[in-house]
Design a protein around this nucleic acid. Structure first.
Lengths: 329, 329
DNA sequence: TTGTAGGCGTTATCAT
DNA sequence: ATGATAACGCCTACAA
């Protein structure tokens, strides 16, 4: 393996000089820079990132901490988008990444998790899918031992930024569109998991809308479960004019049940997963660019690692209507 | 950060002794072992894997090299299962893992890829979704610079193992079941991507079956495309009694089109993705345990890294009939 | 502006 | 059986 030492020899300079050139230090003459870069080219040198990580305060290694459902799910595609978006951006920014899932630390304490991360020379973490009851994750964030970027949860401190769309507004928008298109005056709202951060935000958006449009609204906890959404639909949808769901999966459950019940109610979802195109009936939903959000999170993390303070970052979303013909490839 | 040095001091032994205990070297007295382990406990020491990786020929770091479709797809769930299965097993075996996607190296040569992997101290690679035309990947494998485990492609050499189900037999089985259940004498077979390894194997299985059952068979290239499967169905399904597809996505495309055409033909797929449960009509399909296969690949890779020769590993599959009621949660 | 040298946390070789 | 000590490849004061 060709090392910085070889480059130094080839270029006729000292190792440290090579390092300086590679890391864009000031105070290096153009001439030496060229010599070094030429040697790098000729030897096809690629710095060993493991050694760099060990050596010290380099930008730092990043961990993706993902709350994946243990069983396969249609929404696994979201996780995949998160991962690929992050890895892609990380490669661009020259950051090393390791991927971890919540379930790997199921019986571990926050301290054990922290130690593990340190043993991996991790300095920055991106957290996906944390809910209010994930104590270990909260302790991890509060410890401020690492720079963190949290997706979809409003957790911010000096070393922690949050990245997400405006869930309140998005829920408001998609519901409003659906309800106005169909001229409804009453609505069944199937909310997400009780302890989810986004659940509360989306619910808030829905309540705002109900107040504004003077809607009769019935709220039920769907727990992000397709099955539960179906059951709620069975019981409560008949007397309402529309069904607004806090997730696509629940929207699908609701829609399927409505079809079975042989009644029509407009339904809208949230997320924009592919599966929405397969249900037969078109539904409005909120389309998030998961890969983009994840890439944005990596950028934000790099800023944090460079000394920036934690803050709240809001990303864009769009309203879409998923149609089989548009999805099929 | 507590290091091996601290442990040594705390236990009153030399650093090298601690290392020996940690790595289960022979020639260490029970007494010192205990002393060291006690110190490890008390200090909550976790070895720094980055330093270990740098230091030398430890078991080695592993890269997952995944051929992800660039656009979101319903089959992204497969990739997610692959990743989580591998990471889980790797954590169990104490292997470090980095995840990479093919598209990250789109315009890179094999040499560049190899250099990158070396710069990451990678010694073992698991490759998912390689096709016959991925020259860079083939060069990577042939270079034998790394230990490789290839999923679903019969590439084996001294340093390379393959892990997969018996695609020939699985295709044979699922098609046979479907055809016999429906007593068919003619069949439309929609094959996968022309240059895919599994495509050829599955096709072989189908041909064996056709010969055995004396079926009239029409073969078409579906390219693993739902859209293409739909078009093929439009054109050719009417005159056949069954439609056998080399993937679930194509089976879904075919089934949807059959419903639109308002004719019934039994359809079977391959993979066992969740989406199959949402189509309305039940279909037979081959269910692979993607996470399990991926874990198995990690184990195989470890064996390779420990000096074992490359070989072919065949894993189990099962035939299932996906039903919405079974999938919904 | 350039080079020297110490250190990051381990592993592994070689004495003891 | 145990302990010094030299790598591993890179970064970074600090000296020249």
């Amino acid at each position: 393996m060709v090392s910085i030492k070889d480059v130094a020899k080839h270029a006729g300079v000292a190792i440290s000089t090579v390092s300086k050139v590679l890391n864009h230090y000031p105070n290096v003459s153009e001439e030496t820079k060229e010599k070094v870069n030429k040697a790098v080219e000729e030897l096809n040198f690629v710095p060993n990132s493991v050694a760099a990580a060990l050596s010290s305060k380099q930008a730092g290694r990043v961990a993706l901490l993902i709350n994946l459902n243990e069983k396969t799910q249609a929404i696994d595609e979201i996780g995949m988008q998160y991962i690929s978006g992050a890895l892609n951006k990380a490669m661009e920014l020259n950051l090393d990444v390791i991927t971890l899932f919540f379930f790997m630390f199921k019986n571990k304490t926050a301290e054990e998790l922290i130690r593990y991360l340190k043993s991996q020379s991790i300095t920055g973490i991106i957290i996906y899918g944390v809910s209010k009851t994930d104590k270990v994750i909260h302790r991890l964030i509060e410890s401020q031992e690492f720079k963190c970027v949290v997706i979809d949860a409003p957790l911010v401190n000096e070393n922690t930024s949050s990245v997400s769309i405006d869930h309140r507004k998005a829920q408001y928008d998609v519901a409003k569109k659906t309800i106005e298109e169909n001229n409804c005056k009453s609505v069944l709202y199937i909310a997400g998991k009780k302890n989810g951060y986004v659940t509360a935000q989306r619910l808030e958006g829905m309540r705002d809308l109900a107040k504004e449009l003077n809607l009769t609204m019935l709220e039920r906890d769907g727990d992000f479960s397709e099955l539960q959404a179906r059951n709620i639909t069975t019981r409560y949808a008949r007397n309402k004019e529309a069904v607004v769901c806090a997730s696509d999966l629940m929207a699908i459950g609701a829609m399927k049940e409505l079809i079975r019940m042989d009644i029509f109610r407009p339904v809208c979802g949230f997320d924009g997963i592919i599966l929405m195109g397969y249900v037969g009936k078109q539904m409005n939903t909120v389309c998030q660019d998961f890969a983009g959000i994840s890439g944005r999170a990596v950028e934000e993390l790099q800023l944090l690692m460079n000394g920036q303070e934690g803050r709240r970052v809001t990303t864009e979303y769009s309203l879409v209507r998923m149609k089989y013909e548009d999805i099929i490839r």
